[in-house]
Simulated scan of single mutants.
Amino acid sequence: MKTTKILITLCLLMAWGVSKAASVDTALTYSAAMKRNIKAVVVKPEGYSKDQKYPSLYLLHGFSGDQTDWIKKVPAIQDLADQYKVIIVCPYGAFAGWYVDSPELKDFQYETYITNELVAYIDKNYSTIKDRNSRAITGLSMGGFGGLSLGIKHQDVFGAAGSMSGAVDLRPLSDAFGIEQVLGKYAKYPERWEKASVENLIYLLKPKSLAIIFDCGNDDFLYRFNVILHDKLLERNIPHEFTVRPGSHTWEYWANSITYQMLFFSRFFKGQMPK
């Protein structure tokens, strides 16, 4: 009898623990811009309730990835959602979609999809705080490019933006990673590549108009381009946090990086950024 009671108690405790942990949804969203359904992973924090409103972080995958990358390769993002009481949204950005509205491919309109259609869907179907001051975007590599470019171009949607090992300058990558399929060949359309690169978007920024954080490993092949972006932001007196850590273009690096960025975004959501 005593053993039975202990087992029942353990089962109840385990059930309670499961019910209190972060939960993961797969949202099927329709994109009118691309005329098809697209999946996104949504991580809801522990104790999620429709009676409470939560900030949201859009977390982008890299080249050749998909919406499941973060949850599969860094499952600890569920703990971060719990710790900071944030809804994490991981959109699909295609194998090589580059988070742009492609002038070459009509069914690659990922800028419009994420900043307009997906945000509207998440705000309608989840208990979010529907305000730029409670919405941030970041990502790794291709997604790091997306995090900063979408954040900078859509400051009415996102109040904070970041990048981890981001491809912040597309021009040196003109013959790699499928960028030419969405922008066209660099030799033929150099102005598209110039206009898309993050370092050429910073003219849209004013001091403290967007909370910015980005980092890169010292052994990363994109390291020097991130340093150049950092220097250009300094030249224009744009406040930002830039960190160089030991590491390269790996999931081990990004799993570590997201913990620091989540702290930054949490401070932003709470209005704790330097005035």
Rank of each mutant, 00 (worst) to 15 (best):
L7Y: 11
W16P: 00
W16F: 12
V18G: 07
S23G: 05
D25K: 13
T26D: 01
S31F: 08
S31W: 01
A32T: 13
A32C: 03
M34W: 08
V41G: 01
E46I: 06
E46W: 07
Y48F: 15
D51A: 13
L59Q: 06
I71A: 01
I71V: 05
V74E: 02
A76E: 11
Q83W: 09
I88Q: 09
P91V: 10
G93M: 03
F95V: 10
Y99R: 00
V100N: 11
D101K: 09
S102T: 06
L105T: 03
Y110W: 10
Y113P: 00
I114Q: 02
I122E: 00
I122T: 01
K124G: 09
T128Q: 00
D131N: 15
A136S: 13
L148E: 00
L148Y: 02
H154R: 09
A160K: 08
S163K: 03
S163L: 04
S163R: 02
S165F: 13
L170I: 10
G178V: 06
E180N: 10
V182R: 05
L183A: 14
K185P: 08
E194N: 11
S197H: 06
S197W: 04
A211Y: 14
I213R: 05
I213E: 00
C216Y: 00
D219H: 12
Y223R: 05
N226M: 02
H230N: 13
N237V: 06
P239F: 07
P246V: 02
G247A: 09
S248C: 08
Y253W: 11
Y253N: 05
A255F: 06
I258R: 01
T259A: 06
M262P: 02
F265W: 15
F268H: 11
K270N: 09
